[in-house]
Computed example of a mutant assay.
Amino acid sequence: MQIDFNLILQNKTIILRPIKDSDLENLHQLTADSNAWKFYTHDLSDFEEFKDWVKPALKKDRFQFVILLKENNEIVGSSAFGNFSVRDRRIEIGWTWFAKKHQGTGINSQVKQLMLEYAFEKLYIERVEFKTDVLNAQARASLKNIGAIEEGVLRSHTLMAKSRRRDTIYYSILKSEWNHIKRENEW
């Protein structure tokens, strides 16, 4: 399992390309609503926290994409591959967020489709993991909608923005489930 850090994924509507230093100002402009980050580990509306959040991506400890609309090249959000385990053939998809006006538009499903196809069909991953705040009903519904299986809750697992402790809920899709999920979602 080797991720190409120059990887670009795309369909008819969106492009996922690696984050660059030159994207930071445009990305940060999309994060102005501090209320949007209550389910996030960093308050990305604060530029110092935003820079702290993006450090692992710029150091290639996490493969962070920017998400662009093909029609106008507008940056609409970000998502990533992280927590790679070559030995276990496991990867996590997460660190996903969208500008407010693009939430609930179906872009998230398209992003997940592209990333899942790459993980299972190019990297030959055995397990793709997702995790979120147990209180984040919207993220949980999105994960169930793409066919991810709820696995369980890790209590007081993660420190969130504003010093709250998060109970983290895990989801996954296994290689053996992928073809069925792909057909069910008409991908």
Rank of each mutant, 00 (worst) to 15 (best):
A137T: 08
A141T: 07
V111A: 10
G106L: 10
I93Q: 09
K55P: 01
A36D: 12
I75M: 15
F50R: 06
R89T: 10
F81P: 05
F84W: 09
F84A: 01
I146C: 09
N35Q: 13
L9P: 10
I93Y: 08
V86K: 12
K55C: 01
E74C: 04
K20N: 08
A80P: 12
N72D: 14
F47N: 05
I8E: 13
K144F: 00
N179L: 14
F130R: 05
W178A: 09
L135S: 05
K59L: 15
K12R: 11
P56K: 02
A80C: 13
W97F: 14
L7P: 09
E92W: 03
F120K: 06
L7W: 04
I181L: 15
F65A: 02
I125N: 07
Q2S: 06
L68E: 14
S34Y: 09
L30C: 11
N136L: 00
D52W: 01
R166G: 02
G147L: 04
Q103D: 03
D23C: 06
E92Y: 07
F84P: 05
V86Q: 12
F63Q: 10
D133K: 04
T168N: 08
F98D: 05
A119S: 15
E121Y: 03
N35F: 11
G77S: 09
K70D: 03
D52M: 08
V66K: 03
S78C: 15
L68R: 10
I8G: 00
I91E: 10
M115P: 04
K112T: 01
G104V: 05
A36T: 06
H180A: 13
T158R: 13
L116F: 12
Q138Y: 05
D88N: 14
N26A: 14
S79M: 03
K12L: 00
E25W: 05
W178N: 09
S78E: 04
I173T: 10
I3S: 04
D133F: 02
S22G: 04
N73I: 01
L68F: 03
K175S: 13
R155P: 09
R155K: 15
R165L: 15
F47W: 03
A99H: 08
I107Q: 04
F130Y: 11
H157N: 15
Q138V: 13
D46H: 11
K60D: 07
A119L: 08
R87W: 05
V54W: 02
W95A: 12
D167C: 02
I146P: 12
